[in-house]
Design a binder for these strands. Structure first.
Length: 548
DNA sequence: ATAGGGTTAG
C-alpha cells in the first residue's frame, strides 16, 4: 500500500491498523504506524487513538500520554475515544487515581463529556478492584443522569458478582434490567451460568440454559466452554467430552480455551497420555496451540513429578516462538521445588528474569516455600529480604510460608515475633496463619499456648476450620496430652467438622490403648467415610495438613 | 476506520 500511487487514503490504512490491534499484535501496529509516518502519511484522530490503545496494552502509559502531545502538534483535538482509551489503560494498570483524574478533566473541560463507554470502563475498573459496591453506586448514578446504564454495564456487574459467588445479587440485577426493558444476551447468561457452576448448582445451570434458549438466546463457544471447564474441574472429563461432541454437532467449533479445559481435566486426573492426545488434536488443527496450552500441559507433568517432560515442553514452546510467561515459569519452579531440585528452581528463577518475565509474588512464594521445606532457611530469609526491597505487595501467604518455615526449623521464638508483627505491616493473620502457629507451638511442646491461640482466633473474628482442629488435636496427641483431646474432639464435632484420615489414625491408636471415649469415633467421621486401616495408611501423605 | 461486557494455565 505504501508503494501504490496514488497512496491509499489514511482510512484504508486505519482499517488495517484496527484489525491488527484487534488481534492483539500491538507492537506490530506501532511498527506499522511508524512506517506510515516515515512515508509521509498524515495521522488523524483515528490512527492516534489506535496508537494510544496499543501503548496502553503494552503497559507503556508514558508513551500513551505522550501521544496526546502529538494531537496538539498536528492541530487535532482528542475526542471521547481518546479519553476512554486512556482511562481504560490506567485502569488496566491498576492506576485508579490517574483514571479518576482524566474522568474529572472530561467533566470540567466541558467539550468532551463522558459517555456510556466512559462509565462502562469505570464500572469495570471498580469491579476489577473487587469493589462491587462502588460499581453498583456508579450504576445508580447513571440512572439519575443523561447516560442511562445499558446492557454492557449490567453485564459487567453481573459478571463481577458471579465471580465473587454472589449469584443471588446477580440474579436480582438480571430481573432489574429486564424490568427496564434491557434484554439479557449470551454474555449475561454465560456469566450467570459460570457463577452457578462455581457453586456446584447444576440444576440452576440447567434452568438458566433452558431460560436463555426460551428467549432465543443461544449458548455459544464461551457458554459451552464454561460447562466443559466445570465438568473437568469436577473430574468428569467423560461428560465434558460429551459436551464438546454436542457443540460440534451444533456447529459451534471448540476453540483453544475449550480444548485447554479438557486437557487440564485429564491432567488433573493424571491421565497424561489423554491430555497429550487433546494437545496433538489441537496441533493438527493449525495455529491453535498457545502459551496457555503449553503451561497447562507443563503443569500436568510437574504435578506428576515428571520434570524431564515438563522441561522438554518448555524448550519446545520456545522453539515455536511462544514466549513462556510468569505462570509457565511459576509452574516449573514449583515442580522443581516439589521434587527437591532447588538448584534447578533457582536456575529457572534467574532464567525467567533474563528473559524479561518478572517474578511476581507467587513466584517468590513458591521459591520461598521450596527453600523452607528443604531446610535452607537462611537462603529463604535472604530471599524474603530481597522481596521487601522490591516493593512487592507482600501478602499473608508469604508470611504463612516463612512462619511455617521457622516453626518447622524449631525457631518458634522468631516465628512468634513475625506473627505478632503482622498487624504493624497492615496484614491480618488468616485461618491458615493461626493454624501454622498452633502447629508450631504444639511441635515445640507449648500446647497451652496453642490452645490459647485457638480461643484468640475465634475472638478476633477468624474462626478455626477443619484443618485447625485436626492440627491441634494431632498436636495434643503427639504431646501425650490425651486428657484434653476428648474436649477438643467434642468442640470440633459441635462445629460440624470432622477428623481427617491422619488424625483418625492417631485417634484409633489411642482407642486401642483405651485413652479416649469410643463413643466419639462415629461422630468424627464424615458420612461416606469408610473406616479401614489400610486405606488410612495409604492416605496419610495426601492428607498432610501443611499445604497452601 | 478508534474506546467498555462472558470461557483456559501457576
Amino acid at each position: 500500500m505504501l508503494q501504490m500511487r496514488p497512496v491509499p487514503s489514511v482510512v484504508r490504512f486505519t482499517k488495517i491498523l484496527g484489525q491488527v490491534a484487534k488481534l492483539k499484535h500491538y507492537s506490530a501496529v506501532i511498527s506499522l504506524y511508524n512506517q506510515m509516518g516515515a512515508s509521509g502519511i498524515e495521522h488523524d484522530v483515528y490512527t492516534l487513538n489506535i496508537f494510544i490503545n496499543c501503548y496502553c496494552h503494552l503497559n507503556q502509559m508514558g508513551f500513551s500520554l505522550s501521544v496526546l502531545g502529538k494531537f496538539f502538534k498536528l492541530g487535532l483535538e482528542p475526542n471521547v475515544f481518546t479519553f476512554n482509551t486512556l482511562i481504560n489503560g490506567f485502569l488496566l494498570k491498576n492506576r485508579v487515581v490517574q483514571a479518576a483524574e482524566l474522568f474529572n478533566k472530561m467533566i470540567n473541560a466541558g467539550n468532551c463529556q463522558p459517555d456510556a463507554v466512559t462509565y462502562g470502563t469505570l464500572v469495570k475498573g471498580f469491579c476489577m478492584k473487587g469493589n462491587n459496591r462502588a460499581a453498583i453506586q456508579l450504576l445508580r448514578k447513571m440512572e439519575e443522569g443523561a447516560c442511562k446504564p445499558g446492557l454492557v454495564v449490567y453485564n459487567t456487574i453481573i459478571d463481577s458478582l458471579c465471580k465473587d459467588k454472589l449469584v443471588d445479587d446477580a440474579l436480582n440485577l438480571l430481573s432489574e434490567m429486564m424490568c427496564k426493558g434491557i434484554a439479557p444476551d449470551v454474555i449475561t447468561y454465560t456469566s450467570l451460568i459460570h457463577g452457578v457452576c462455581k457453586l456446584g448448582e447444576w440444576k440452576e445451570a440447567k434452568r438458566l440454559l433452558n431460560e436463555m434458549v426460551s428467549k432465543n438466546v443461544f449458548p455459544d463457544v464461551c457458554t459451552f466452554s464454561v460447562l466443559v471447564d466445570t465438568l473437568c474441574k469436577e473430574g468428569m472429563v467423560g461428560e465434558a467430552e460429551g459436551v464438546v461432541k454436542m457443540m460440534i454437532e451444533r456447529d459451534i467449533q471448540p476453540n483453544t480455551v475449550t480444548y485447554n479445559s479438557l486437557m487440564d481435566g485429564y491432567c488433573l486426573r493424571g491421565e497424561m497420555s489423554k491430555a497429550r492426545k487433546v494437545f496433538k488434536l489441537m496441533l493438527s488443527k493449525g495455529s491453535m496451540v498457545d502459551v496457555f496450552n503449553y503451561s497447562t500441559l507443563i503443569n500436568g507433568y510437574c504435578k506428576r513429578k515428571m520434570m524431564d517432560e515438563a522441561m522438554t515442553l518448555l524448550q519446545e514452546m520456545s522453539r515455536k516462538g511462544l514466549v513462556p510467561n510468569t505462570v509457565t515459569y511459576n509452574t516449573l519452579v514449583d515442580g522443581c521445588c516439589k521434587v527437591g531440585k532447588l538448584g534447578d528452581a533457582q536456575q529457572l528463577f534467574s532464567e525467567m528474569q533474563a528473559c524479561g518475565q518478572l517474578p511476581d509474588v507467587q513466584t517468590y512464594a513458591i521459591l520461598l516455600d521450596g527453600l523452607c521445606k528443604s531446610g535452607q532457611l537462611s537462603t529463604a530469609i535472604q530471599l524474603f529480604r530481597e522481596m521487601e526491597g522490591k516493593k512487592l505487595d507482600l501478602n499473608i501467604v508469604i508470611y504463612n510460608i516463612l512462619i511455617e518455615g521457622l516453626c518447622l526449623a524449631g525457631k518458634i521464638e522468631s516465628a512468634r515475633v513475625l506473627f505478632r508483627g503482622l498487624s504493624s505491616k497492615g496484614l491480618q493473620p488468616a485461618v491458615r496463619t493461626y493454624t501454622i502457629m498452633i502447629n508450631g507451638l504444639c511441635i515445640g511442646g507449648l500446647t497451652c499456648e496453642a490452645e490459647k491461640l485457638l480461643t484468640e482466633m475465634e475472638e478476633k473474628g477468624c474462626p478455626p476450620d477443619d484443618c485447625t482442629y485436626n492440627t491441634i488435636i494431632r498436636g495434643f496427641i503427639n504431646n501425650n496430652e490425651t486428657v484434653r483431646v476428648t474436649g477438643l474432639i467434642q468442640q470440633m464435632v459441635e462445629k460440624g467438622f470432622s477428623a481427617d484420615a491422619w488424625t483418625t489414625e492417631l485417634i484409633v491408636d489411642l482407642l486401642c490403648k483405651d485413652k479416649v471415649d469410643p463413643a466419639l469415633l462415629p461422630l468424627m467421621q464424615k458420612e461416606n467415610y469408610e473406616l479401614n486401616l489400610p486405606h488410612l495408611k495409604l492416605n496419610r501423605s495426601s492428607d498432610h495438613p501443611n499445604k497452601h
